[in-house]
Design a protein around this nucleic acid. Sequence first.
RNA 1: GCCCCCAUCGUCUAGUCUGGUCUAGGACACGGGCCUUUCAAGCCCGCGACAAGGGUUCGAAUCCCUUUGGGGGCACCA
Length: 505
Amino acid sequence: MTVRVRMAPSPTGEMHIGNVRTAVFNWLFARKMGGQFILRIEDTDRTRYRPETIRVIMDGLRWLGLDWDEGPGAEELERVGMANAAEYAVGGPYGPYIQSGRLEMYRQVAEELIERGWAYRCNCSPERLAAVRARQRANKEMIMYDRHCRNLPPDAISPDEPHVIRLKVPLSGRTVVHDVIKGDVVFDNSGLDDQVLLKSDGFPTYHLAVVVDDHFMKITHVIRGDDWIPSTPKRIMIYQAMGWEVPVYCHVPLVNGPDGRKLSKRHGATSITEFREQGYLPEALFNFLALLGWAPGGGEQEIFDREELIEEFDLFRVNKASASFSYKKLDWMNGVYIRRLSTDDLFEQLLPFWQRAGLVADPCPPEERERLLAVVPLIRERLRKLSEVVQWTEFLFREVSPPPAEKLVGKKMTPEASLAALRRAREVLAEVTPFTAEAIEPPLRALVEELGLKPGQLFGIIRWATTGQKVAPPLFGTLAIIGREKTLARLAAAERVLEEESDGE
RNA sequence: GCCCCCAUCGUCUAGUCUGGUCUAGGACACGGGCCUUUCAAGCCCGCGACAAGGGUUCGAAUCCCUUUGGGGGCACCA
């Protein structure tokens, strides 16, 4: 039997990183076992439905490298109004893969559950249900449907009048969830609610839809967040009522924020789109996510490429406890991946960030490209996220206003000595030919000797004068990229600052 | 209120199933140092945990119980 797993996001917004991690586990398991990874769109909540997010979800999964073997086909995607549907269409033998296209199946199963005595019609009004809940809350009773319609005569509610269909949960006995990760979890049936299966708008609730789809799509392993555990016994009842085989359940732990609380916007990025926009590499995020709640046994390796992860992945080793998301560790890992990139590859990754910041034209002119290719090696070891390229290189693109006088005075130096150093540096740099990092270094080092300074004193002053910053990429390469003309002009401007300072006193 | 899940350094984790090799290993973070033109990167050193209490056992991070602490769920949401 081949393994079939699925990811079933609902198109209500961005995909949360916790769900993405669950998708990673599903994908790794499918690839490891040589099975199929299926994408299903769960759009049964018509009030929160936002069709445009289907594309966002698909783009995110693709960017992370989570390709699906079966999923919505072109016709379905067109039906929900997606442009370029063909580009995202995958299809498969068990469609449709968007739940709103499967309504008839859910309705039929719900009716059959009634026939089999496992479900009943209910026409209680929302007001009545709210009143029941309020009363229960006041009396500190268990909050669940009072089963008002459960024992009505079979024909009391006509199929034609508005109503819902509820699951007829046994009043006694127990239901056991056999879970690969948590072990056997036992529930008393008496504590389970008569869950609504089919809503009055004809759409199924999640509980019905997921069971019907998983069954007909031949899903073998349900790998999902452990927040679903409490609703699992109700699903098992539907399987049993229909005489279907129950899939293997694997409830993986949730992902919390660094403070242990639910991961939310205030912690930082939470959606895959945000991580992408902040300049995390998909390989790094994938590596990091795979190791959140799971680790291969034995070794002390932290960096794994995709193939190694597939090779090592073991669903049975997934932790029981929830994990806190550490942005700092992700940043470190992202830096590792950035440093591994070739100059050309890193440049291609960086270009959109320069362009988005308005520093480079789109498309990038060939001569600008040559210049920026030279910048890449200077900053590669300094980047943890691609977006940081802006702060590291901004002075290359914009006019640098001369820094205040105190910044131009070297450590343990007088303003006069600093001014003299600046003047000599400008003279030296005016002569250097060609104006390259290799050619610039020796004369500047000689100047350090000549002036009797420490390297850091002279270079620090020049750095401030030419970049307007205390911290910048390595000086010689930076000057070469700034170019002789601008370098000399910035040095001259800095000299003027010091001259005016001494005049003023 | 009721139900469920979980518990090793600040964080991610190895070790737990198959008690002894664990004076508990690695990584991130943090502190110090080396290198060094700043910042990084790299290298070295350090800090730092079996939640608590009871058992079982010659021996427990590992098995059992209780407590505490965290998390999750109780919709015509998923």
